[in-house]
Amino acid sequence: MVEQPRHAPLDIAYSPCPNDTFVFHAWAHGLVPDAPPLNVTFADIDVTNGMAERGELDVLKVSYAVLPWVLEEYALLPCGGALGRGCGPLVLTREPGRDLRGATVAVPGERSTAYLLFRLWAAEQVPGGVGDVVVMPFDEIMPAVRDGRVDAGLVIHEARFTYQRYGLHRLADLGEHWERTTGLPIPLGAIIARRSLGGPTLRALAAAARTSVRMAWDDPQASREYVRAHAQEMDREVAEQHIGLYVNEFTADLGESGLAAVRGLLTRAAAEGLVPPLAPDALTLPR
């Protein structure tokens, strides 16, 4: 297997959300020693999931839910992603206690982890099932619910902190449901890299991502302008809450409990016929 030269630029895609720009600031700006330079593409998670399925870039931030379709070509890096507690997707409605049977629900992507968690939850909580599912960019979902264009919306990211501004009600916290029923943290977004880069290079990329996370923690002010420049109209307080919630110890290292959460989600989803089954070593970095 031919490995990529040590300092050849890598094409990477991640979201403009504060957690990703915070995590990758040091690496993207050439501040991580011995790390390859990055050619960065900013894209929403539904777009990066599609990129991964088409094998378009070297490194991507994707939904954990898409892993069963891409792990033949890509390897999971055990750091840099989003996994934690108290940070799961929410189901929002205009009326409290809305019955979702036959309802139209907006979701941020058919291969998103949020939608996978929703499907597992709805199978238990919505007898007869929901009605139509509509994919929308996540920043359009709350206005669509508010305006009555859909009956409910599945939201992620900073919507946890802002949904009440839209006059909406939280019908369910899918992360809370997941944690209560499994005892595991919530897997949301993963960092993957091409297997063809080779095991030593993949481990070096994981080390670079981990160093970038730790540099961000050591000097939070260094990334502030980068975060702000890509956070669109998000106010500073919400951006800082976003980072505080989604960048945690699992971002630096999934560890055994993080990997158990990923396996638990994908194994349960496979048992329900929602995703293909994982190979036993699918989540392990190649040598």
Rank of each mutant, 00 (worst) to 15 (best):
A193R: 01
R194A: 00
R195T: 04
S196Y: 03
L197Q: 01
G198I: 03
G199T: 00
G199R: 01
T201N: 09
L202S: 02
L202D: 01
R203D: 02
R203F: 02
A204F: 04
L205V: 01
A206V: 04
A207V: 06
A208E: 03
A208N: 05
R210T: 13
T211M: 10
S212T: 07
S212C: 06
V213F: 07
R214P: 09
M215L: 11
W217N: 12
W217G: 13
P220T: 09
R224H: 15
R224G: 09
E225I: 10
E225S: 15
E225Q: 15
Y226L: 08
Y226D: 07
V227I: 06
R228V: 03
R228N: 05
A229N: 08
H230Q: 08
Q232S: 12
E233T: 13
M234L: 15
M234D: 07
M234A: 09
D235L: 01
D235M: 00
A239K: 03
Q241F: 02
Q241A: 14
G244C: 13
Y246E: 15
E249R: 15
E249S: 14
F250V: 11
F250D: 11
F250K: 08
A252M: 11
A252D: 13
D253M: 07
D253K: 09
L254G: 06
L254C: 08
G255Q: 05
G255M: 06
E256F: 12
S257M: 14
S257L: 15
G258I: 06
A260T: 12
A261F: 10
G264P: 09
G264L: 10
G264V: 09
L265T: 10
T267E: 15
T267W: 12
R268Y: 14
R268S: 15
